[in-house]
Amino acid sequence: MTLEHVSAAVVAAELVIMLLARFGTERRHWRHYKRDKAAPHQRDDIRLGPGLVYSVAALALVAIAVISDIDFEWSLGTLSLLGVLGVLVPGYAANSVMLLSTRGRSKPLKGRQEMLAYMLAALGGAAAVAFI
């Protein structure tokens, strides 16, 4: 299995995690709406993750790009691909892990849950280098 296959599998897994989190929060909102017409929680939005997971993904992306000593073209397409697949998608997926771990409640994360989210962000940022 090549690095490209592993990277594609990582991106696919991140997308599945994001969809599971979105489906769970939407189902919870629908259930609340049917019962007492409660408004959705703003913290359930996967786009509002903590900035640290995006920083971890970006740092992993830069570290692997420097270590692997790849030569790539500094074009808008390449940079946007790295931004989306190397920072945004891993950050959204890591925040989705946090949402799934707490089930949307405002309780604090346990250490292993938080570490899993940061590892997913770092793995996603590192795997994005294969798409250059």
Rank of each mutant, 00 (worst) to 15 (best):
L88M: 12
F72L: 15
S75R: 12
S80V: 08
W74D: 11
L76I: 12
T102S: 13
V87A: 06
A93H: 04
V84K: 03
L99F: 10
G91P: 04
A93F: 09
R103P: 07
M98G: 15
L82S: 05
L88E: 10
V89S: 11
G91A: 14
M98W: 11
G104H: 10
R105Q: 11
L99Y: 04
T102R: 15
S75H: 03
L81T: 13
V87C: 08
L100N: 04
L81I: 08
L76D: 06
T102K: 05
G86C: 09
T78P: 08
T78Q: 10
L88C: 14
T78V: 13
M98R: 11
T78S: 10
V87W: 02
L79D: 03
L81N: 04
L88G: 00
E73F: 04
E73G: 05
S101L: 05
L100G: 12
L100S: 09
A94S: 07
S101F: 01
V89G: 02
G91M: 07
L99R: 09
T102A: 14
A93V: 02
L85W: 02
N95K: 09
L82W: 02
T78G: 13
L81W: 11
G91N: 07
E73Q: 14
L79H: 06
L82Y: 07
G83C: 03
L85N: 05
F72C: 12
T102W: 11
G91C: 04
T78R: 11
S101E: 15
N95P: 08
S80F: 02
G104K: 00
S75T: 15
N95F: 06
V89F: 02
S101W: 03
M98C: 11
S75Y: 01
R105E: 14
S101Q: 10
G86F: 10
M98L: 13
Y92L: 15
W74Y: 14
L82I: 13
V97N: 00
T102L: 01
F72E: 05
S101I: 00
M98H: 11
S75K: 12
S80C: 03
T102C: 08
S80P: 01
